[in-house]
Computed example of a mutant assay.
Amino acid sequence: IYDPNLKPIDFKSLNEVKNSQNHTINHFYEKLLKLKDLMNTNTAKEIAQKRHKFMEDFLNEFYSEWNFNEQY
């Protein structure tokens, strides 16, 4: 799910995605957190903003727990 040594990649093609060594947390940065800026309707923008905030909160909690675990 996470390797702090693997940084997010700005993929140029689907083949790059398929052939990369990656993890789930990077997917948030490579795609999911970019989606809110691609919405067209007001309703979609509102929903996307809420989901974006949820993902940011999840990542903050994840890193908090990850860093806690690294201390022990």
Rank of each mutant, 00 (worst) to 15 (best):
residue 1 I to P: 08
residue 48 A to P: 09
residue 62 F to N: 11
residue 36 K to G: 01
residue 26 N to R: 05
residue 62 F to C: 09
residue 16 E to H: 03
residue 25 I to K: 01
residue 54 F to D: 15
residue 11 F to P: 04
residue 56 E to N: 12
residue 59 L to A: 06
residue 20 S to G: 06
residue 54 F to I: 14
residue 45 K to Y: 03
residue 56 E to G: 02
residue 31 K to A: 03
residue 49 Q to E: 08
residue 16 E to F: 09
residue 20 S to K: 05
residue 24 T to Y: 12
residue 55 M to K: 10
residue 2 Y to T: 00
residue 13 S to V: 08
residue 25 I to Q: 02
residue 9 I to S: 03
residue 62 F to I: 04
residue 46 E to L: 13
residue 53 K to F: 14
residue 3 D to L: 02
residue 37 D to P: 00
residue 54 F to G: 03
residue 7 K to S: 14
residue 54 F to M: 14
residue 2 Y to D: 02
residue 3 D to M: 01
residue 28 F to R: 03
residue 10 D to F: 12
residue 70 E to T: 13
residue 28 F to A: 04
residue 2 Y to N: 05
residue 5 N to R: 11
residue 13 S to Y: 08
residue 26 N to L: 06
residue 39 M to V: 07
residue 66 W to Y: 04
residue 47 I to W: 14
residue 18 K to S: 04
residue 68 F to P: 00
residue 50 K to I: 13
residue 67 N to M: 08
residue 41 T to P: 05
residue 23 H to N: 11
residue 46 E to F: 13
residue 58 F to T: 07
residue 52 H to K: 08
residue 24 T to D: 14
residue 27 H to F: 03
residue 34 K to G: 00
residue 6 L to Q: 07
residue 44 A to Y: 01
residue 59 L to F: 03
residue 61 E to Y: 15
residue 9 I to E: 07
residue 8 P to K: 07
residue 35 L to R: 03
residue 30 E to S: 06
residue 34 K to C: 01
residue 6 L to R: 06
residue 39 M to D: 00
residue 57 D to R: 12
residue 54 F to S: 14
residue 68 F to D: 11
residue 29 Y to V: 01
residue 26 N to A: 00
residue 14 L to W: 15
residue 64 S to Q: 10
residue 68 F to C: 07
residue 25 I to T: 08
residue 57 D to G: 13
residue 53 K to Y: 09
residue 64 S to M: 12
residue 51 R to M: 11
